[in-house]
Every structure is written in structure tokens, then in C-alpha cells.
Write a protein that binds this DNA or RNA. Structure first.
Lengths: 196, 196
DNA sequence: TCTTAAAAATACCATTCGGTATGTTTTTTG
DNA sequence: CAAAAAACATACCGAATGGTATTTTTAAGA
């Protein structure tokens, strides 16, 4: 029972890439089995429905990525404000899996699925909550260490920063250029400095 | 030639509502003709393809709405920073067409269509450009009148503010609650105040 | 090694999709 | 009013959709 899990993982990874590029609804099972070269029988052996696969993508692909790329960097950097800024800078400018023309996978998923599939909604909410917690904790850390003012509302700032990130990803998609990222990052820095 | 245009408008309006709620791809022609009680023959008399209708929605429904709800309020309010804040407050908290659970129609459209349909992309880009110009002009106005610091980069601030709006709309969808709007608006005010 | 269950392949299905062909009914206009 | 064009109605089409039933192959454990 090793090759089977490999097959399953291949499906999840390739499907994720397709969905990231094309969207969930417009990525058909036939698309997926064509690019993975896995037959329909194999696909439906591993997943009861398309939505079960979608959920598996969120939990088994997106979640680990979130931890590695969105949360860990916050914890390794010592200065909290630098941590947040550098995270965004890395995600937007340096990460070479996330493409400007395709936006942020989690954000795309949310926009597409959230009003209609409550299971997706729940899974995506958990994802976002984790990121929220991590950013909030980073800010609280800064308040304790004195690098951030004590009157700063950590949760509010987190929401503000997160919304900026999601929004600029969407704007980047529209303009298909990282130029807007640069503008965003400059103002983000100014905003973050105002929390000192 | 009057009833015909009414039919056309009905299709556009009802289709827009459906798309706002369900998304473009998942709203079928059959959905549209069912809710409008217009036959397929009538539909295809007015629009060659579904995409032609989609474009018409952007240009004939979204664009006027943008002007009325997103741009004009900026020009009537005298204080520029108040204008921007009040605009966002109205859009997020008071506007009763835009629902928190469905997000922002323009943002939804962009997220869904922009990498795949260049015509949609172009139309949506024009839309966004108009809003960008209006906000930028408002900030420049503030710089001239002295209510905004001269060293403020108007274009950058515009991008930052817009991305926040789009992002918080998406976050609102996810949480299905205006609570996040309140947090966002508080931090927006703080950010805008820092431009004085 | 042989059995048995897991894993994968094949062929098919009902439904829905966007779109068309061909009418019929209204309006407009000369 | 009559003719012609505009506006709408009906029936249908091929392709694609998510999913299933059934068979075949592969691999694990006794």
C-alpha cells in the first residue's frame, strides 16, 4: 500500500495546479485524469466525489503550504514588524509557485466556493483562522517586546493586513503585473511603521 | 423598439443578480431564461453568446453602478480623507444591494474570469482604472487643499486602499459576517489619518 | 505460492451545457 | 392596410459534465 498513496497524491497535486490556474468549477474530472494519466476508475477509487477531492486538496495540500510559507516565516524572524513585512514581500515578490496572473489559491477558492459549499467554507475558514492567529500572535509578541505600541489592536491589524494581501492578489491578477505589488508593499511598510 | 430593450435590460439585470450570487460560469443560460421567463430564442436574439451578455453586464450594469456608488460620493464630499472613508463605510456597512455573503461583484468577476477571458479582463480593467483615477484625484485634491501631506504618493495609497476593499469583501464572504468590516474600517481610518 | 482484497482500467449513463435551425408572433414603416 | 423586419417561441443538437457498473490487473499476507 505505497503506490496507491502515491497515485492519490499525484491526483491531489496535479488537480490543485489545474484548479489554481483554471478554477475549481471549470476544472473537470476529465481534465484531471487527462493530465495525471490516471483513469477514471482510479480517480473514483480514491475519491467518492469531486468535492471530496476538493476538500482533500484544501486539507492535504493547501494547509501544509500555509504552514510552511505563511506561518513559519513569521516565527523565525525575530522582529515582528519585519516578520510581517518580509512575509508579504516573499509571498508576493519572491515565491515562485504563486503566480501573479493566477492570484492566491486560498483566496480564489474562497471567492469561488464559499457561498455555496459549506464544507469548503469550513475548511477554508480553518485555514484562514490559522493564519489570523499566527499574525495576531506576531503582533502581540511585538507589543510585549516593545517594538509595537501597546494600544495597537492586534486582531484589527491582522484583518487589515490580510485583506490587503488578498485584495492585492486580485488586483495583480487583473493587471497581470507585479507593479501593483510594489506599490502595495511600500504602503504596507508605511502602515506597519505607524504601529511602532 | 421599446419593449425589446426592456427585455434586454431584464435579462441583463436578472442575469447580473444570478451571477453575483452564483458566479458566472455556474450560472447557465437555462438558469437565466428560467428566472427571467424569457425564452432561449429571445435570449439569443439579444446576445450572440453568453460571453457577449457577460460583457454587456460589465459595461451596462456594473459601470453605471460604479459611477453612482463608487465614484460620485468621492466628488460630493468636500474633505478628501472623509470622502474615502465614508465611501468605504457606505459600501461596506450601508449599501443594501451588496451583500456580505456574496462579496463585491466586480471583484468576483475579476477573480473568476480575468486569467481566461481577455475581453472580460479589458472591460474589468477599464472599470478598475476609473475607480483608481477617482480615488487618486481625491487624494491629489487633498494634497492641494492641505488636508493631506504633500509627500503622500496618491497612486500608491489608492492601490493600497483598493486592495484592502477587495480583500475585506472576500474575507467577509468567508466569515459571512460584517464584523470584519468593522475592524477593517477602524484600521482604514487610522491609516488615512496618518496621511494628514 | 496461492488466495484475496486492493487498485486500476474500461465502457457506459443520464443530465446539463451553450448554441442553432426553424418557425410564429409582434411592431414598425412605407 | 400590407409587407417587411424585428422580436420572440419551440424543438432540437453535439459535446461535455459528474458519476457508475463491471471487469481486469496488481500487490499483500497466509
Amino acid at each position: 500500500m505505497k503506490k496507491a498513496e502515491a497515485t492519490r497524491l499525484t491526483i491531489l497535486q496535479k488537480a490543485f495546479e489545474l484548479i489554481y490556474v483554471k478554477g475549481y468549477q471549470t476544472t473537470s474530472i476529465d481534465d484531471i485524469i487527462a493530465t495525471t494519466k490516471v483513469t477514471k476508475g482510479a480517480f473514483y477509487y480514491h475519491f467518492k466525489t469531486k468535492d471530496e477531492m476538493g476538500l482533500a486538496i484544501i486539507n492535504e495540500i493547501l494547509k501544509p503550504t500555509l504552514t510552511n510559507s505563511f506561518i513559519e516565516p513569521l516565527q523565525t524572524e525575530e522582529n515582528p514588524l519585519d516578520a510581517i513585512y518580509n512575509l508579504m514581500d516573499n509571498l508576493l515578490m519572491k515565491n515562485d509557485f504563486l503566480k501573479v496572473e493566477y492570484g492566491c489559491p486560498a483566496s480564489n477558492f474562497t471567492q469561488e466556493m464559499t457561498p455555496w459549499n459549506s464544507e469548503f467554507n469550513k475548511a477554508l475558514n480553518e485555514l484562514t483562522q490559522e493564519w489570523t492567529k499566527a499574525i495576531t500572535a506576531t503582533i502581540e509578541r511585538g507589543k510585549k517586546s516593545g517594538t509595537i505600541r501597546k494600544d495597537v489592536n492586534a486582531k484589527q491589524v491582522t484583518i487589515f493586513v490580510m485583506s490587503g494581501y488578498w485584495g492585492i492578489r486580485n488586483l495583480g491578477k487583473l493587471e497581470n503585473s507585479k507593479k501593483v505589488y510594489v506599490s502595495y508593499l511600500k504602503q504596507l511598510k508605511i502602515y506597519l511603521d505607524s504601529l511602532k
